[in-house]
Design a protein around this nucleic acid. Structure first.
Lengths: 347, 347
DNA sequence: TTGAAAGCGCTACCAA
DNA sequence: TTGGTAGCGCTTTCAA
């Protein structure tokens, strides 16, 4: 590894030599003050009054050198950071969630946190937690499953003052935003029951990484129909036209009068295939999707869907901030998934 | 700001007191060795041979304390990091791109880089660049526009050994993965010309943040039809059913025989509205989308589309690694957007 | 084979 | 109002 030597304090010759990264000491030297003064000026330290001319000299020197403070050195010295870390979702997750993340980032940066999505690929469970902990974040927001009590402990022991999970279940020691996907399935199930349907299929994606959501959604349907005598059939489906056509071809044998799909995309895929098979919707089979995507309004009949409401980013940001300020408070658990049925023409 | 006092080295009493974050010194103390030895063992330093019993003691002590190294301290000492920083896109961008990012993260972590998406919201241009520079990343990958030569300079002066832009145009001093969206429009335009269409509309999203892509796509259509006597009309469209219906109602007046939409979503939205108005597709008006989404196969007629091929994550990861290893090499410029027409039934 | 110590860049305490 | 300086956690050179 080649180390770039520090530029000595003597000014370099005429040619613009590739200088090394300027530090606050360089700024101090150029401004003719001490490093302490530079720090006071650039951080607007209120406990210390610096004369106006000095301030100006420091600012000018900093600008001239293109000085940018070194976050690592700063947080090392401070003993803590304002870094909020989220693992980046490994699979491309929906629009809804992307929007939520954006909102959250915005709200957190309003509170002066730095938000970073950590590209964790190939690391699982506690290894991932250790990798995150190396950055000494002040808070960690973990979507989905995959973080256990051990991981929470690792993070807390490394100084994280708040660990928040966003997923289907609580984790010991962490705050939880309970995304109760069962309620999504329950909502669809109740609707179908009310519409008099008795033999309900539930489309479950075959794609990896979605079980954490698809399983509870299926379970919710089961619960809604429990004790009514209605049957619930899981229908694994890959997100391809061929798979949908195959499933549709099998429809008479299945004898279902309703189907709830994991989300609108799978619903539309199947609905298209069913129409191509001559299945009448909603007469022969009712179809309900989820997530209320624009997509569901394009194909006819318009798709009934479960509208899912995520919490506002503001809300989560405030929870994080509270937790950071009082790390010893009891972990909070919030149910945050609103599910409501949007009835259109397919059910 | 409340500082957590360091736990003194005397063992705490019975109750599990909230200890402070363990450091390598704590590990050394518990293992009865020096901090240097701890470092050697935990980093598998090959230049130094440590006896097996010592190794074991160190590892056990580290595990017992739940020791996690402090990335900031490490990179401060080392003088450089393995951090690759990407600003997180402010607007939810398509599936295609999300997949690309994932692949890239995977490829980079194979090369032992840590990839982080920085939630830049509200910061623009050079301010954003400064914020990124504070983390002293070894490389910065910037999608879209918004980074100027100034920003590149800031990053390089702060030690970034590679700056790569992924966008419509080169930026002085940075490597460029040229996403030539004009070629997407050009592809659609050529196709429509070949199909004998002469009055071409181009749907341009009204939503913010998409101009960087929509403008070149429009321009590409213009170029493809230049000199053929065909007309090109920009059609601003918001992503709502109402807006689409309004545009469709205006269709007779516009007198267009073809339309290229920014992407498949807008194309489908408009195609649905056109069908509802009784416009025959493709007889009266040909419709072409872009991005080749599943969506385009669900509504009939199946949507013709421009299939866009992004480079592999592997490819970009290798470019980054090369640039990091040889930061003084000439900035490379690569055209990386493959555009090919997928003809289905709507054109 | 192991240890002592310097020093990365920064801030905050204390002294001048 | 300003400067000197200790020390955050870590790695690495040099010495033992």
């Amino acid at each position: 590894m080649v180390e770039i030597p520090n530029t000595p304090s003597v000014p370099s010759s005429a040619a613009p030599v590739p200088r090394s990264v300027p530090t606050s000491a360089d700024v101090a030297r150029l401004a003719g003050v001490s490093r302490a003064t530079v720090s006071y000026v650039l951080n607007n330290t209120s406990a210390v009054r610096i004369s106006e001319p000095t301030r100006r000299r420091v600012h000018e020197a900093a600008k001239e050198l293109g000085y940018v403070p070194h976050a690592a050195a700063r947080s090392l010295r401070a003993g803590h950071s304002r870094l909020v870390l989220m693992p980046a979702p490994a699979i491309p997750v929906g629009l809804l969630y992307a929007r939520f993340i954006n909102e959250l980032q915005w709200a957190l940066s309003r509170l002066d946190y730095t938000v970073v999505q950590y590209g964790t690929v190939g690391l699982r469970g506690d290894d991932a937690a250790r990798a995150w902990a190396e950055l000494r974040p002040v808070a960690v927001l973990v979507p989905g499953t995959g973080l256990g009590p051990q991981g929470v402990a690792v993070l807390k022991r490394s100084g994280a003052r708040a660990v928040v999970t966003l997923g289907p279940e609580r984790v010991e020691g962490a705050h939880a935003l309970l995304m109760d996907h069962e309620s999504v399935g329950h909502c669809a199930g109740s609707h179908l029951r009310a519409r008099g349907r008795r033999r309900v299929g539930v489309v479950v994606p075959e794609e990896d990484g979605l079980e954490a959501y698809s399983r509870p959604r299926l379970e919710g349907v089961r619960q809604a129909l429990h004790g009514t005598g209605a049957t619930v059939t899981a229908l694994p489906l890959a997100h391809t036209e061929q798979a949908a056509a195959r499933l549709a071809a099998d429809w008479p044998r299945l004898g279902l009068d309703a189907v709830f799909a994991y989300n609108d995309e799978y619903a539309m895929l199947l609905m298209r295939a069913l129409k191509d098979e001559g299945v009448r919707i909603p007469e022969d089979t009712a179809v309900v999707g989820a997530d209320d995507l624009m997509l569901g309004r394009l194909l006819r009949p318009r798709l009934s869907t479960v509208h899912v409401e995520l919490p506002s980013g503001q809300y989560l940001a405030e929870l994080v901030d509270r937790a950071v300020r009082d790390p010893h408070a009891e972990p909070e658990t919030h149910k945050v998934l609103g599910a409501s049925l949007v009835r259109r023409d397919s059910s």
